[in-house]
Design a protein around this nucleic acid. Sequence first.
DNA 1: TAGATTGTTAATCGATTAACAATC
DNA 2: TAGATTGTTAATCGATTAACAATC
Lengths: 220, 220
Amino acid sequence: MKTEKISDAVVRRLPVYLRFLNELSRREVPTVSSQELGQKLDLNPAQIRKDLAYFGDFGRKGIGYDVPYLIEKIRQILNLDQQINVALIGAGNLGQALSNYNAYVKDNMKIVAVFDSSPAKIGTMINNIEIQPIEELIETVKKKNIRIGIITVPDVEAQRVADQLIEAGIGAILNFAPIIIKAPAEVRVHAADFTTDLMSLAYYLDGGKETTNDDSKMAD
Amino acid sequence: MKTEKISDAVVRRLPVYLRFLNELSRREVPTVSSQELGQKLDLNPAQIRKDLAYFGDFGRKGIGYDVPYLIEKIRQILNLDQQINVALIGAGNLGQALSNYNAYVKDNMKIVAVFDSSPAKIGTMINNIEIQPIEELIETVKKKNIRIGIITVPDVEAQRVADQLIEAGIGAILNFAPIIIKAPAEVRVHAADFTTDLMSLAYYLDGGKETTNDDSKMAD
DNA sequence: TAGATTGTTAATCGATTAACAATC
DNA sequence: TAGATTGTTAATCGATTAACAATC
């Protein structure tokens, strides 16, 4: 175990490991090697061993990793050995879809408050949570010990919402709006805008030009 | 302009540039420097210049980049100068939310088919598109020249759906299911599972341990 | 014991940043 | 012209992979 600081690339792989380990656990597989993990997750086994070794000696030479033990350790590393309260800001289509995902709950992440600016929505229930006006954001985040905010408001409102989350002392933000959120260094922000992802995928298409490849016009 | 192969990191930044350039265009800003872009997008100006220079000499020394021209060029690079047909597989909450986003349309990406395995949903309309049974996936992808598939089915079905997309000759896949999709090298797959993202954010919280910081026990 | 697999160091590979000549 | 800013090379930084001694 070292005391270097851990890169974001490493941290982002931990949930991927955890996810698959949970599946192994469900199937009651007792141990797993970096080899097997790498195969299943399309990663280099050395990288997996190195990632895990940043945090401790979790494996056993000649054997591999004990599945339940490694699950426990990764959950500790990710702070998921305690409930993490999450706020959702923006109860539109996407926000509603996310709130319905209760996948987080088993991972100890729970949406405990939902906010929206539309008067029509305020007071209505979404997944057993009453939608609150954004004016109550700061107070509620403090009162309910909310650590992460998920932003699903339109882009023009996103930075304003982020500023309020930051003022309320949020720890991290998952931003679905298609803008770059500005935040102080101590507040981690991840971009989750899938339209950006989708556009980058288009790059890898060969342009659909197979059928329209008319070279005769390219003589100038 | 070089003929090196372009890294995914570069490709993923292009839509971010495009997004902001579109905003500048709306505000009728005629030119922009790498300096300004970097400031707004939290990126190093040298990196932006380098990214763009992979594809051509788009800027003018002493001036910067012409906004409309750069927009046109990036759209060409991303194949977004033509309509890209997209299929959505999985008409659950998330799928419905994504289908309602018509942000893609202005970027020339259009969902032209939606599939689901639930008999109750088949035949119903979602955003003006009739939900089809998954059995029709392969045929429809071919017939409608669909290039990208968005997978929003439950994890146990995701690989099966991907296999069918691949069989139908899809170019790229955006996968929202929390599993690693296996695909041949020529089919690009991006992971878009936000629960993974959310879990990695939890790492950056200081564990809610601010109040439990009892140094007296650390003397060993 | 023999085979397997870790943890870790060293080697490699790739991406970011600094610096600056070219030039608008 | 003087100031600004690109495109590009070189320097730096960081992440991935290979290799292997340690050991179960």
